[in-house]
Amino acid sequence: MLTRASASRYRTLFISDIHLGTRGCQAEMLLDFLHHFEAERIYLIGDIFDGWRLRRGWHWPQAHNDVIEAILHKAHAGVQIIYIPGNHDEVARNYIGTHFGGIEVRLTDEHMAADKRRFLITHGDQFDIVVKNADWLAHLGDRAYKFVLGLNTTVNRIRRLWGGQYWSLSNWAKQQVKQAVNFIGEYESVLAEEARRSGYDGIICGHIHKAEMRDMDGVLYINTGDWVESCTAVVEDQCGQLHMIDWTSLTPRRQQEDKTRPTSSQVPPESVAARLAPAVANQDH
């Protein structure tokens, strides 16, 4: 595991949809990611914990505690952390404008990149008609989603027996269902239009668990993905360039490097994260 001094440093880190409190949460992978990447500012863009699921049954293993502790440690070390609640952790919206443990809670935010581009930061559920106008239907869909994630866990346990890397059954299914594809396209268009209407250069959101970074008629639409299906995040470098990081694709490469790395007395000064930098750059959309 990398030390704080050897981690790759970025200006800003954007993470959403961790869903702590659910069995589908990939907390261990997120912890690994957080140990490899440091930033001056971190945005937690909603659904960090899953209040919907926790109300139906308590599930909170040690790894989920470890994620919270890792985030609080960064806040205590001086990292600015801005928490924008989503629909699954909407109870935190009762605390908009407050601080706890060095974390500031905001409904939305404006992020100014190093290259002076302005981005609207929002979880995105405000633009989801199903969540906004049919809460009961959203909860019904959440139960079906939980079932698919249960299958996903079983599939990946079997894959690990043969040394296979993490694969998301739920994410694959989402790409095959025409209605889901249409909904995702509409969601992206609506959020891009909101950014355009408000005079922003782009929008950074979460909510639909579909990592994406693309230009939509002059507006940069960015969805950070999640830590249930895709295990993705977005980082801003010191020049203001934004990069999508797919940790599931980088992790096997890092683990292979760990196996071939010299013993501690022979470890070269450059970090694993630094050697992964070219691969991270290739994640640009």
Rank of each mutant, 00 (worst) to 15 (best):
A180T: 10
S264V: 05
G150H: 09
I45Q: 02
W136E: 08
F37D: 00
I84C: 12
T232I: 02
G97T: 01
Q255P: 00
E229R: 10
D89E: 12
V155N: 03
L242N: 09
H99F: 12
A77S: 15
V130Q: 11
A92Y: 04
I84V: 15
V272F: 09
A195M: 04
G46V: 11
H123A: 05
I103D: 03
A39N: 10
A211L: 10
Y200V: 03
Q176N: 08
G202F: 02
M244P: 04
T3K: 07
G102Q: 10
L20P: 01
G97Q: 05
R9Q: 13
R41A: 12
E236S: 13
C205M: 11
H76Y: 13
G97S: 12
L242D: 04
R41P: 00
P85T: 06
T3W: 06
D284R: 14
V131Y: 13
T108M: 14
E229F: 07
W247H: 05
K210S: 09
G218R: 11
G202I: 01
G164T: 00
R56Q: 15
A192F: 07
N152R: 06
D215M: 09
I71L: 15
V155I: 15
A75N: 07
H123D: 05
V67G: 05
V235E: 05
F100A: 03
V219G: 03
R55P: 01
G225P: 03
D47M: 10
A173H: 00
A27K: 06
I96G: 00
G150Y: 02
Y145T: 13
A27I: 01
F183A: 12
R56I: 00
H88K: 04
T153A: 13
L169S: 02
V105N: 07
D226L: 11
S271G: 07
L276I: 10
C25H: 00
Q283F: 09
G51R: 08
Y10A: 06
A144D: 09
I121D: 03
C231Q: 01
A211N: 06
D50Y: 05
T260C: 01
S189M: 09
I203T: 10
K116E: 13
H139Y: 14
E28L: 12
A144Q: 10
N94V: 02
Y43H: 11
N65A: 02
E186C: 03
V228P: 01
F14A: 05
L30Y: 09
T224F: 09
V272R: 06
N152C: 03
S8A: 15
H73T: 11
H111M: 12
Q80V: 04
R106P: 00
R55F: 01
S265H: 11
G46W: 08
I121S: 01
I208C: 04
Y166Q: 13
L31V: 06
R9M: 13
D125A: 13
T3E: 12
C231I: 01
K210L: 03
T263L: 13
R56W: 06
I103E: 05
S198V: 00
G124V: 06
F33Q: 11
K146E: 15
G206T: 10
